[in-house]
Design a protein around this nucleic acid. Structure first.
Ligand code: ZN
Ligand code: ZN
Ligand code: ZN
Ligand code: ZN
Lengths: 130, 130
DNA sequence: CTGGACCCTGAAGTCAACTTCAGGGTGTAG
DNA sequence: CTACACCCTGAAGTTGACTTCAGGGTCCAG
C-alpha cells in the first residue's frame, strides 16, 4: 500500500502519516527498493484506526505512542503492561469526570438561556454584561 | 484594583490578564493617570469568572470572545448564544461517547492481559492490532 | 515524450494559549 | 537611601500537532 492509498483508507493526510512515522506512532515503513517509496501493510492501517479512536478519546500523541509501545512489549512484561494500562484507565476516568462537569455546566447555561428567552432577556448575556 | 489584586482575586496570572486584555477578552483597562498602572473594576473580575467557567465548559478563547461580543450587541443575540452553546454541547457529547468506547477498549485490554497472564502469553498485542 | 499525479527529504511555518525575557519605571518599609 | 515587590512594554520562546515549503525524483495515460 502506498502512502497515498493508506491516507485515503485511514482518513489521515499523507503528511500526517509521514509525521506519525517520524514520531514513532507507526513503525518505519518498509521501502520499495528501487524507488524508495514507503510500502505499508494492513497493520499500519489498523494502527491508524487505533490512533484515531485514541485521539477521539482525548489521548495525546505521546500517550498513544506509549499505548502502542505496550503492544510491542512481549508477554513477559505483563506486569508493566498492566500497570501502564491501569494508569491510563484511571486517567481516562479522571478526564471523563471532568467532561461530565463541563457538560453539566454547559447544559445549565443552555437551559438558563432557554428559560430566559420567555422573559425577553438572555441570562447568559446578562451574566456576562454585569 | 491593580492587576496583581485582580490576579489574586481571579486566579489568573498577571501575564495572562495582560494577554487577555490584548486579545480583547477584557476591555482595555482604565489607567491610574500618573503611573500608567492598570486600574480594574468589578466588571473585569466578573468577566474573568465568566472566562473561567467558559473555559471549563470547553470553549476556546475565540469562542469566549464571540460570546462576549454577543453580549455587547443589543437585541436578539439569544438565538446565536443558543446555537453556540448547543453546538458545543453536541461536540462534548461526541467526545464523551468516544471516551466511553475507549474506556471499554482499555478495560477489555487490561482484563485480557490479566486473563492471559496464566497462560504465559499477553493478548494485548493481538487485541490492539485487531 | 510530456503533463500531471504521486513520492521523497529536511526545514521552516502555523495555531492556540500562554510564558518568558529584556529593559525599564514605581512605591514603600526599614 | 535602598532593597524589594510590584508595575509597564514589545518581542521572543514554548508546546503539541500538524502543515507548508523548497527542491527534488517517479510513474503512467495519451
Ligand atoms: Zn440566552
Ligand atoms: Zn435563548
Ligand atoms: Zn459501556
Ligand atoms: Zn499481558
Amino acid at each position: 500500500m502506498t502512502i497515498g492509498e493508506l491516507a485515503r483508507a485511514s482518513g489521515f493526510r499523507v503528511e500526517t502519516i509521514r509525521y506519525y512515522e517520524r514520531e514513532g506512532l507507526l513503525p518505519r515503513a518498509h521501502r520499495w527498493r528501487d524507488n524508495n517509496y514507503r510500502d505499508f501493510d494492513k497493520e499500519a492501517l489498523a494502527r491508524l484506526h487505533f490512533v484515531r479512536r485514541a485521539k477521539a478519546a482525548g489521548f495525546t500523541l505521546r500517550e498513544i505512542r506509549e499505548l502502542l509501545d505496550l503492544s510491542l512489549t512481549p508477554g513477559e512484561a505483563c506486569g508493566e503492561v498492566e500497570a501502564l494500562l491501569s494508569r491510563k484507565l484511571a486517567e481516562l476516568d479522571r478526564r471523563m469526570a471532568e467532561m461530565h462537569r463541563m457538560r453539566e455546566n454547559l447544559a445549565a447555561l443552555l437551559a438558563s438561556c432557554r428559560a430566559g428567552e420567555a422573559e425577553g432577556a438572555c441570562p447568559v448575556l446578562r451574566a456576562m454584561r454585569q
